[in-house]
Design a binder for these strands. Sequence first.
DNA 1: ATAATAAAAGATAAATTTATCTTTTATTAT
DNA 2: ATAATAAAAGATAAATTTATCTTTTATTAT
Lengths: 142, 142
Amino acid sequence: MILSKSCEYAIRATVYVALKSRKNEKTGIIEVAEAIGSPMHFTGKILQTLVRKKILSSAKGPTGGFYVENGQDLFLIDIVRAIDGNGLFTSCVLGLESCSETQPCPMHEQVKPIRDLLMAEFSKKPVTGLVEEFQQHKYFLK
Amino acid sequence: MILSKSCEYAIRATVYVALKSRKNEKTGIIEVAEAIGSPMHFTGKILQTLVRKKILSSAKGPTGGFYVENGQDLFLIDIVRAIDGNGLFTSCVLGLESCSETQPCPMHEQVKPIRDLLMAEFSKKPVTGLVEEFQQHKYFLK
DNA sequence: ATAATAAAAGATAAATTTATCTTTTATTAT
DNA sequence: ATAATAAAAGATAAATTTATCTTTTATTAT
């Protein structure tokens, strides 16, 4: 596990909502959960966090649902940060509080560039890219 | 978090036990836990797993304790595998069951080499290296 | 104004990981 | 044989993550 299960759901949910938003459609929790194979209530919680963190937007009421704002420039890293925070990229792989750049643990030098690589890959993956590949049936969301 | 907390403890415990083994000394749970700053009973559990997985050896009784067998060629990856398994290197970063080499998710191609890099770094780090750096006070274990 | 809809929020529960406690088993020294 | 020691094993508890349920709030359509 690199990412938490919540984060995995969040990514897939965002892709699905973004795809629907291209057709100017808002998506409800039930449909999102069904689409990504996750528990409905829990998905609702995650979607709420994404709204709070400005990744997604939402509307209440009979014409409500979740959507991506037009012109929103989202990258995979934004979702990862919104749900899991920065721990993946910053905490010591040996679990040492004292580990830092100035006082590195024995694996710091080897692991840091790998983490930076991972962050770089997440940072350059636009959500629109994930949406397009999904639309072309290159992968599923469950 | 790349590794679980249990795994972080396991690595540090192994380093400490290995250092003591160089002086032909066995180490008890209480001392290990104190040295690595972890809860004693939980540390005992982790050490037991390490024994079961043949990373460490143990002896009961008044002269008992944990130790590393002479000639044991340990690498960081051995500990990681013993405690956390292979999930870190194999499961899909988007959490998709259907993701595989033949049916890759959109991040598969970017993430797989990074994971392989990580596995490679863990695979080439001997525990003896970690022990030596610890002995030279290059880092602490808590 | 009311009813229906859907998100938001709060509460509760289950599963999992981490942590703590107690008893049993094995070994050594006397 | 007995006492002491330390790991091993099993049980229990607490913390955290994942999952489920209920109520409240906000919005639209009638």
